[in-house]
Design a protein around this nucleic acid. Sequence first.
DNA 1: ATGGCAATGTTTCATTGA
Length: 263
Amino acid sequence: MKLATWNVNSIRARRDRVLEWMAANQPDVLCLQELKTEDADFPAEDFRGLGYEAAVFGQRTYNGVAILARGPLGDVERGFGDGIADQQARFVAATVADGVRVMSAYVPNGEAVGSEKFAYKLAWCERLVAFLRARVDTGGLAVLAGDFNVAPAPIDVHDPALWEGHVLFSAPEREAFAQIVGVGLVDIVRRLNPTSPMYSWWDYRQLAFPKNHGLRIDHVLVTPALAALAAAAHVDRAARQGKLPSDHAPVVVEFAERPAAGC
DNA sequence: ATGGCAATGTTTCATTGA
């Protein structure tokens, strides 16, 4: 199984680029964030033409997440279903054809440490942890992929001294990320690449991409059983190049096929 | 500390992102 996660910064603005990337890279599963599009305007037919079904949780202008996969998507959950009023479409889960539970998450940006949006970000992460504990079998095959808007460690930041204490790299956010991983998940991209930065986002401004002034804020977290099958992970920097790219690049993880039952 | 870049709707600027 080949799985990728990609914050596309508007699926309507990035439709052709994403379709071309799918055709060229042939992932089995793609988790999308920042659709900025209502369900009705998600280009589901274009993806179906490439052989993918979609579970979409869209929203006008902001947020919006989806899972694309070969074959049917079962048990789709949109949001945490925790009874808390929340207008923001940031989480969708579905079971893909081979039984893996897949979750696509778009953690709030947080704007600035100490702001109202920062408090919302931390509270949202606590709700995610509660959902994972209550609803996900960490002893089985599951993956939580998406834009976490947190760089977990200094290696994930091009200039850790500059970023220390700022939003995306503050102590409360790093602790929130540790709590998420702490439910029993593995940061598989870092495990497979312990010494390479693996940046996934570069600011549009100040020539950040050509200077490689990036952050690793998009992550793929897997259960131990799935981690045991993981073979390789990379960031597709080529998808950050060219005209009008997303500011994020796809993060790709390849897993060995499971042994067939009974063998 | 500020601004720069991109997408969207509130559209010829404001808001948000990270």
